[in-house]
């Protein structure tokens, strides 16, 4: 039963992180490889602020969200928009965005590594303290509860946003067919910025929450999470909101099982193996709507 708690909390972190990646990839065709560094750098920024000020939980979370959203928008304007403007066709744009994301991600990583000397950093200076609560014999921390609730709430909100709102409609139109969307008068640029801001905000939020619940993270921790998020997304199918939740909790479950059954060092292989397996067996994912382009 305690394992179930682990699955739900771990899965929620993955969900919160992967949600932003999934939205940008599924709607505006941007697989953002700098998403991991946004995650890390938001938490890092919060820790910097905490070196000077003592803040409670909500301000710290807000710092994460704002820094994440700003970074994400900045990356979109400075990097991805430029790449798209210059690319010959969609295929080359896709690849250059991936490479460009990897390139851009080096900068925040370098800054954080320089400041921390590559040591883990945390948010212990906050006036908020992580406490263990006991629920019917299950041990869970307050921050874990918050992570689960926020992940599910934001996931639901994103799904509704994508399904209902006018902006959501426009976004889905872009995801389905860029040309039709342009004809319908969708302002692609503004929507892309909003989407990137939302995705970055979620990455920042998950960064702060994750750092709180682990106590400390290393500057490099964004990279692994990135690959795991990719696993979550393709497990469920690119562009599917149900899919990304399914992927996140399934990956968490698989990792917890491996963790409890073995000595733990194989855990990292689960997501990588799943990526491989899914791509070979069912490239469109479990809930995928898009056919995977093959050459």
């Amino acid at each position: 039963m305690q394992d179930l708690v682990s699955v739900v909390t771990l899965g929620s972190v993955y969900l919160l992180f992967a949600l932003g990646m999934s939205i940008t990839w599924g709607t505006i065709d941007i697989l953002n490889f700098a998403h991991g560094s946004v995650f890390m750098f938001s938490a890092f920024s919060a820790s910097l602020v905490l070196e000077r000020l003592t803040l409670g939980l909500v301000p710290v979370l807000l710092i994460g969200v704002v820094v994440g959203a700003l970074m994400s928008v900045l990356i979109q304007v400075v990097a991805f928009e430029q790449i798209i403007k210059r690319a010959r066709d969609r295929r080359t744009a896709e690849m250059q965005i991936l490479i460009g994301g990897i390139g851009v991600a080096i900068i925040p990583l370098a800054i954080a590594q320089h400041h921390t000397q590559s040591n883990p950093f945390g948010l212990n200076a906050s006036s908020f303290t992580v406490e263990s609560i006991s629920l019917g014999g299950l041990r869970i921390t307050n921050i874990q509860v918050l992570t689960v609730l926020l992940a599910l709430a934001l996931w639901a909100a994103a799904a509704v946003w994508l399904r209902r709102s006018r902006q959501g409609l426009a976004l889905r139109a872009i995801g389905v067919d860029a040309q039709t969307a342009a004809l319908m008068g969708v302002d692609r640029r503004r929507l892309a910025l909003v989407t990137m801001a939302v995705a970055g905000g979620m990455a920042g939020l998950s960064g702060v929450l994750f750092t709180f619940s682990l106590g400390a993270i290393t500057p490099e921790s964004g990279d692994t999470l990135l690959v795991k998020a990719f696993a979550c997304i393709i497990l469920g199918g690119v562009g599917s909101m149900l899919g990304v939740a399914f992927g996140a909790y399934l990956l968490a479950a698989a990792e917890v099982v491996i963790l409890t059954q073995t000595n733990g060092s194989w855990v990292e292989a689960v997501s990588f193996g799943l990526i491989f397996l899914v791509l070979l067996v069912r490239p469109a994912g479990v809930f995928g709507r898009k056919e995977v382009r093959r050459t």
């Binding site: 690959v227 990292e268 990588f272 382009r293």
Partner: peptide
């Protein structure tokens, strides 16, 4: 046979699996 990003990520996964095998 996989295209574009899917192929890229499959190979990233391959690389990382090699690291995990090295540790184990």
């Amino acid at each position: 046979r996989l295209g574009g990003l899917y192929l890229a990520m499959a190979t990233v996964a391959f690389d990382l699996i090699i690291s995990v095998i090295a540790i184990n």
